[in-house]
Design a binder for these strands. Sequence first.
DNA 1: TTCCAAAAGATAGTATTACTACTAACTTAA
DNA 2: TTAAGTTAGTAGTAATACTATCTTTTGGAA
Lengths: 236, 236
Amino acid sequence: MFYFAETFFADMDLYLKIRMNEKLFLRNPEETELGKNIIRYSIMLIHEIGFEAFTFKKLAVKIGTTEAGVYRYFENKHLLLIYIVDWYWAWQEYRLLFHTNNVKKPETKLKKAITLLSTPIVDDASTPYINETLLYEIVMSEGAKSYLTRNVTEYNEAKLFKPYKDLCGRIADIITECNPKYKFPRSLASTIIEMAHSQSFYMKNLPSLTDFGKSKDEAKIMTFLVDMVFSTIKVL
Amino acid sequence: MFYFAETFFADMDLYLKIRMNEKLFLRNPEETELGKNIIRYSIMLIHEIGFEAFTFKKLAVKIGTTEAGVYRYFENKHLLLIYIVDWYWAWQEYRLLFHTNNVKKPETKLKKAITLLSTPIVDDASTPYINETLLYEIVMSEGAKSYLTRNVTEYNEAKLFKPYKDLCGRIADIITECNPKYKFPRSLASTIIEMAHSQSFYMKNLPSLTDFGKSKDEAKIMTFLVDMVFSTIKVL
DNA sequence: TTCCAAAAGATAGTATTACTACTAACTTAA
DNA sequence: TTAAGTTAGTAGTAATACTATCTTTTGGAA
């Protein structure tokens, strides 16, 4: 529960706030209007033009500030990407906890986990200035770039990938609950998370790498994964 | 067999040559010394400094030519990446055909396919100027960047991802041979290919996402995948 | 042997990117 | 009221990702 700093009431609405690793930023973007705008508009802009074409200059123009203004919050665009991707994984972990709370059967929990990861995202009203639908698509097409870098080791030592690992660990624990004898719970968990996103990317962009090309039906990804996972751990 | 242009004798040695999609380059790098050096040294340089830090300037210095010289062969560094990644997938398809030739049992073929994809690569002497060991590591850590781009659709229409798709299709066919009733052969095939590489990347860089962190033993990735795949298609 | 075309090489230039450094303005606290 | 700290804006720079042009080399046909 490390990352879920607080859920609180304000103006009659329930808000979700996630505590982010401080090494990700120079100044906490949640604390100022400009900071929140940087997050909100970078999600929109990365979604719109893609991460390679995304620059702090373009972002600054979009939110009516200067390049230097953005650099005061984030050292570079790669750390900003990790910030929003981390936010997404922490949010997914929160969703998993929320939806499996009081569920007793580990099989039901595991199925829920797969469903949550492989079903289209609708915007979460309890997170102002973050559009989860766009974020989901960014993670799908740019997410891997957060760790596919020369700095993986350095970033990993700074715990920048903790949210992803936490989510993976939690799913691995559910797998172990289902079948304590299964030998590869962590690898199976990372396979679920990865495939939920990359099968969806393939379906949209390289359909012949999947069996869902014609229907473009996300529900089939869930069916594929549920079948694979439960066959593998030999539980029904 | 589209991509395997020729295997031929020259100076008493057997060489393997792969026919590449002409839209990848401006001038065929296989036809000149400079072209072959571009391929050979770009594999070394990308492996050494990573794809983001890799530039045509640095490459030109390394092989003793000018930036403009490299630009005569490749429009940009992204197409050069796709070239070498495509080469890798075509080579893997060739290896698969070679090693499953005359094998009757589809289960044996499938197991061989998984083994070939998830076992460390030793340099193939029949391919001069290409170091497969380095190439394997590049595909592991940069391969996804070839299709994680705004141009996926355009590149896909130009058939630039054909080698990957062909390999996927071939593995899917073996899966169907094993169990004609299994519903998701293509998705399972792309899962095998993806996971063979990304579990290996995780093992090296983010070990807690796998169950092989301590041993760092690639053979366990194979065991994990073989178990998962055969459980899923319900054949032994 | 000469002549031609194509390839390679050298040089220079441009717009953009990814920053850094400095300065001006504004706020707060003594 | 003034000194100190905070914040934003301006102006630069080195590197990147190209393009354009001009010269030299080379290999083959006339």
